[in-house]
Design a protein around this nucleic acid. Sequence first.
DNA 1: TGCACTTCATGTCATGGTGACTATAAGATG
DNA 2: CATCTTATAGTCACCATGACATGAAGTGCA
Lengths: 245, 245
Amino acid sequence: MTQSGILDTEQAPDLERARPADDVTRVAVSTVIFSLRPCADGAAVVLPLVRRTRDPFQGLWALPGGWLDAAEGLDAAASRTLEETTALSPSYLEQLYAFGDVDRSPTRVVSIVYWALLRPDEIADAAERENVEWFDAASLPRLAFDHNDIVDYALWRLRNKVGYSRIAHGLLADEFTLAELREVYESILGRRLDPANFRRQAEHSGTLIPTDRFRTGSHRPARLYRYNQDVELADRGPLTGSSTK
Amino acid sequence: MTQSGILDTEQAPDLERARPADDVTRVAVSTVIFSLRPCADGAAVVLPLVRRTRDPFQGLWALPGGWLDAAEGLDAAASRTLEETTALSPSYLEQLYAFGDVDRSPTRVVSIVYWALLRPDEIADAAERENVEWFDAASLPRLAFDHNDIVDYALWRLRNKVGYSRIAHGLLADEFTLAELREVYESILGRRLDPANFRRQAEHSGTLIPTDRFRTGSHRPARLYRYNQDVELADRGPLTGSSTK
DNA sequence: TGCACTTCATGTCATGGTGACTATAAGATG
DNA sequence: CATCTTATAGTCACCATGACATGAAGTGCA
């Protein structure tokens, strides 16, 4: 839970810790945490990065993460590093990919990377930490290790998955208008969607519960909807049960 | 390339090898290798398993795999273990998932699991090795470790992916009839497909090249098709380039 | 107050893909 | 040659979708 826990990502030489033999591969866990931030035209996909305070790649930004503890499962390690960064539990968390090229780091590190979705209302208090900053996913600086590639892949997965699942709801508060839900899709997919057709699809999907409340303030009030909790955000197949061991 | 390389999967105590400290996590790579075998009604999904010759789980069947070598990438390790089992390179190889529950093995092991597709004509000479046997994916015995769960997940992924990609071609020889291609889909999905509609879809997909040859022998001859190599078997997103490091 | 404007919400229409089904072609079998 | 089986082609109803039109209900300004 210490700040240093966040920053020791990858194989930064940590003298306080027993150093394994040179030929041993170490396992790290990192997480790409997506959220949305209001911007000029709609919303932008943003993610938190951590500035490295030691070599290698000192000074560069990197994904939040840390070493896998011998006594914790992969999912638990991802939750922990995420909690250490944002101090909140995500609305969605899924394993992304294992990266293990030999040359991706000076010493041998296999990174199990997760990706997560965070609701905008959850970010607020969590954002402000030393050496943690939120970046626009569309314009990242050069990151440490192969983390640029990793973010690219996570974005690809996000864009794909938004098309055949309900994960967009993982980026919204409990109650939302259809225009807000549409804006989530638009900022992820990077294109405008027809409001009328979007409404038809959303209503037909069976995942929305209309409330009797309305969002007022701008022109005609829009009905507020809730997400149907009976429906999973995404079908994870046989993995569903044992996931948080 | 030695037989023992295959069998030392997971944390079998191997005295010839330096044993890391007790609190260190070790990384293994395993592969679920799918192929098709002709059977009573069509074809059955089959996969090779290796019998364990030492504790834990001595005598039980397990997925082919081995320890990750410090000098090889994850993809390379998967190719190697696959080569050691089948002596052939697969027509399709993709990372499946990283399994790392604390209690999945007596000592701490994180397994990076891959899945592969093999053409039926490739199996023939490769199959017969001591302690290696092909099993019907639909009726597996109890496997070592969490390998039953892993196979279930791989099957789920296979069934999903066959719906939105062209991986079915990874289970067929160069030239095939539409009935043969349809049989691949039928055995993976577990249901019959309408021949006429299947033909319409297949022809419309743009991935098939008709040849001027025909498969004769049973009733009306069927035209042979080839797969359009310009089209990838599956869209792997930004991962495509650096995959076999 | 009245009018213009914006967003919410509903409806229409043409298009294309899909499942169910029918019909014909062509070789195998006895 | 008659019949069977499979290959291949075509038809039709249905449904999801994109493009677009229309009305509903607020805000903002003259």
